[in-house]
Amino acid sequence: MEKLVVIKNASGLHARPAGMFVKKAAEFKSVVEVKAKGKTVNAKSIMGIMSLGLAQGDELTVVANGEDQESAVAALVELVEGGFGE
């Protein structure tokens, strides 16, 4: 299962929101990945997420495979769309 989402918060996916994203992804049993800028990274890896260098307006695709894939995608998309509370 996958869903496309656009980064809304002004500072993009810097350290704090990337940490929140990874922590949320780690709550799920599914394999969770992020596709952006032609790369695919493990959503549970802070270094992977930071390496994408995502800024406001950039698109990313949240991909999850496993028993709780729908919940994982929904939770992560909600986090991004909510601007990480910024």
Rank of each mutant, 00 (worst) to 15 (best):
M1D: 11
E2Q: 15
E2N: 13
E2T: 10
K3I: 02
K3Q: 15
L4C: 00
L4V: 08
V5S: 05
V6T: 15
V6K: 15
V6Y: 06
I7R: 07
K8M: 00
S11H: 10
S11Q: 13
G12M: 09
G12P: 10
L13E: 09
L13Y: 02
H14Q: 06
H14I: 04
A15R: 11
R16M: 07
R16H: 06
A18S: 14
G19E: 07
G19A: 14
M20E: 13
M20Y: 07
M20L: 13
M20I: 02
M20S: 03
V22E: 04
K24S: 02
K24Q: 14
A25D: 10
A25H: 06
A25V: 04
A26E: 14
E27T: 05
F28R: 03
K29L: 03
S30F: 05
S30Y: 05
S30M: 09
S30W: 07
V31Y: 03
V32C: 08
V32L: 06
E33C: 08
E33W: 07
E33F: 05
E33D: 11
V34R: 06
A36G: 10
A36E: 12
K37A: 04
K37N: 13
G38R: 08
K39L: 05
K39F: 00
N42Q: 06
A43R: 09
K44L: 09
K44N: 03
K44C: 02
S45L: 03
I46N: 08
M47P: 11
M47G: 06
G48T: 01
I49Q: 02
I49E: 02
I49F: 06
I49K: 00
M50D: 00
L52E: 10
G53L: 03
L54I: 01
A55P: 02
A55Y: 03
A55S: 15
A55F: 05
Q56F: 01
G57W: 12
G57N: 11
G57P: 12
G57E: 13
D58G: 11
D58R: 13
D58Y: 12
D58K: 12
L60I: 08
T61I: 14
T61D: 01
T61R: 14
V62I: 15
V63A: 02
V63H: 13
V63L: 13
A64S: 09
A64G: 05
N65D: 15
G66C: 07
E67C: 01
E67S: 12
D68P: 00
D68Y: 04
Q69E: 15
A72D: 11
A72S: 10
A72Q: 13
A72E: 12
A72F: 13
A74R: 14
A74N: 15
A75H: 03
A75L: 07
A75Y: 07
V77I: 14
V77T: 05
V77K: 02
V77P: 04
E78S: 15
L79K: 08
L79D: 05
V80P: 14
V80E: 05
E81S: 11
G82E: 09
G83W: 12
G83M: 08
F84D: 09
F84K: 10
G85P: 07
G85K: 13
G85Q: 13
E86H: 09
